[in-house]
């Protein structure tokens, strides 16, 4: 099993120039004597990604996700640390790296807006110096897999956001990169489109062995595409674990929804259930997943009324992650 991405003690500090404010004097002062502030965007992070792995990089705004991604793609120079991607040093071997990686920016389209996706793809074939026969056949495969046939020859400006994203991802795979970097790939998409993109990414990756590294705010991206999660906060790695491990370790609680004949239920405090929502006939509680807890809860409810329905869920991933951030902030404050 080869290592696709190897990061050791990677750091990035910026000197951001601060504008003093509007007005002529401020502007002149900014040019003549710029004021700057040092910011540690990424602070000695280390991780390794094996070839074929699908990793989600999540964190709140300003956490350092996009900065890290840009360093891996060779766009930014690190302040210190070691990185290899596909065996290459990104900023030093940028030309060769270009052939080995693909990028998808959710907020910025790489497709030419006035032209059909096919035109962008023909240009990309020249960018990546792919022989005609090779890219033609690869395009056919991608068109089948992504169902692009009706979209390929229509101007991009006529496509919906979801259709555009499908074309973007397909185009990014034309040169069969070993590693694909995606920056917020499902942003702005509706539920169906998100599901489609996630499914396509997962399937392509498992079939082609493409390593995926995606940054996102959307926990659905994690659950449906990736096997592994790296949580970044304040430039540091908070957690690096498989999705399963994340659920097991941090999902000690369960969400139980009780649909009852009576309008309300009284829950004795001893059970330790926290009411999340209560509307007539429907109560949702959060309870620690101990051995007896759920049983005790159901007993307590059945003593009062009959149960029409019972749903037991994991808490939403959002909450899990938010609580991880919160505990990190608390630790930070305590320190």
């Amino acid at each position: 099993m080869s290592i696709a991405v190897d990061v050791k003690e990677l750091s990035k500090s910026f000197r951001t120039r601060e504008a003093r404010g509007p007005g002529v004097r401020a502007r002149v002062a900014d040019v003549v004597a710029p004021r700057s502030r040092a910011v540690r965007a990424v602070d000695r992070i280390s991780f390794r990604i094996a070839s074929g792995e699908r990793v989600a990089f999540i964190g709140p705004n300003g956490a350092g996700k996009s900065t890290t991604l840009k360093m891996l793609a060779g766009i930014l120079l690190p302040t210190s640390g070691h990185v290899t991607v596909a065996g290459l040093v990104p900023w030093r071997d940028r030309y060769q790296l270009g052939f080995a990686i693909g990028t998808v920016f959710g907020q910025r389209s790489q497709l030419w807006y006035q032209l059909a996706p096919r035109d962008t793809i023909e240009l990309l074939a020249r960018v990546y110096e792919i022989p005609r026969a090779v890219w033609r056949s690869r395009l056919d495969t991608l068109v089948d897999a992504f169902e692009l046939a009706p979209l390929l020859d229509r101007p991009v400006r006529q496509l919906s956001l979801g259709e555009r994203m499908r074309c973007e991802v397909a185009a990014s795979l034309l040169h069969a990169p070993g590693v694909l970097f995606l920056d917020e790939p499902t942003i702005g998409l509706d539920v169906t489109a998100k599901a489609t993109i996630r499914e396509l990414l997962h399937r392509r990756s498992t079939e082609d062995g493409t390593t995926l590294l995606l940054t996102s705010h959307d926990t659905g991206d994690i659950e449906q595409v990736c096997d592994r999660v790296i949580i970044i906060h304040g430039g540091r790695i908070l957690l690096d674990a498989s999705v399963g491990e994340l659920k097991r370790r941090y999902l000690r609680s369960r969400r139980v929804t009780l649909v009852t004949a009576s309008e309300h239920v009284e829950l004795p405090a001893a059970i330790g259930a926290r009411v999340v929502s209560a509307v007539p006939h429907r109560t949702t509680v959060e309870i620690d997943a101990g051995d007896t807890a759920v049983g005790a809860l159901v007993d307590a409810v059945l003593r009062q009324t009959t149960l029409r329905d019972l749903v037991i869920d994991d808490p939403p991933m959002d909450e899990v992650i938010r609580s991880i951030y919160r505990s990190a902030d608390d630790e930070g404050e305590a320190a």
């Binding site: 910026f14 951001t16 965007a41 350092g64 996009s66 900065t67 900023w91």
Partner: peptide, 11 residues
Amino acid sequence: YSSGSRFATFT
């Protein structure tokens, strides 16, 4: 640009 010494905006 690559060393990030500009009016940087980053997430």
